[in-house]
Simulated assay, not measured.
Amino acid sequence: MSVAERILDERPRVSGAGDARALIENVLDALSALAHLVGEETELVRVGRLPEAMTREPRKAELAGTYMRGVEQVKLNAVALARFAPDQVKRLKEAHHAFQNLIETNQLVLATARAVSESVIRDLAADANKPMRANGYGPAATVGAGVFARPNSGPLVVSRRL
């Protein structure tokens, strides 16, 4: 557990300018680490490295929890923070808005990856479920072909690692 995580777990009360700056800096540190991790995850998903992106989930959850505890501390001490460190409060708000934009991008990338994977699965299912008819029947019949399966049909293999 980092110093910032430990301080944010202690539920401090802001009683001066030093306390205000320390609390906001700790929240900004947690937000910065979380933003970096979300950015990495977004890029990994964008390039199709899903298993590697998934390895970041435990640390991301930990950092998100730390950040949320920090936000709660900021809310509890909002009046004191506005009085003792208005510039840092402004910085925190700006960082939070930038993080929201990063989360929106992350959500778009994840939705795109989900849509692509669903499309691939749907196409595979449609191909696997096509009726296999003999080439010798129907309007496009070739008499004497004697083949009762699609020429390229074979076993369906799906990777569960994706």
Rank of each mutant, 00 (worst) to 15 (best):
S2W: 06
S2R: 12
E5A: 14
E5M: 09
D9L: 06
R11H: 15
P12T: 05
R13C: 14
L23H: 00
I24Y: 00
A30F: 06
L31N: 06
S32F: 02
S32V: 10
S32T: 14
A35V: 03
E40M: 06
E40K: 14
E40C: 05
T42G: 03
T42D: 07
L44A: 05
P51N: 10
M54L: 15
R56C: 13
E57V: 12
R59Q: 08
K60F: 04
L63Q: 00
A64Q: 08
T66S: 11
L76D: 10
A80Y: 00
A80G: 03
A85Y: 01
V89N: 02
L92Y: 08
E94A: 15
F99M: 06
L108G: 11
L108N: 09
L108A: 10
L108H: 11
L108I: 11
L110G: 01
A111H: 05
T112V: 11
R122P: 06
D123C: 06
L124N: 09
L124I: 10
A125H: 13
A126V: 12
A126C: 08
A128E: 05
K130M: 08
P131W: 06
P131Q: 09
M132W: 03
M132N: 06
P139F: 02
P139R: 11
A140F: 07
A140C: 09
A140W: 07
V143N: 10
A145V: 12
A145E: 14
G146C: 02
V147L: 14
V147P: 08
F148K: 15
A149K: 13
N152K: 08
L156P: 04
V157D: 15
V158M: 06
V158H: 06
S159W: 07
S159I: 04
R160E: 05
L162E: 09
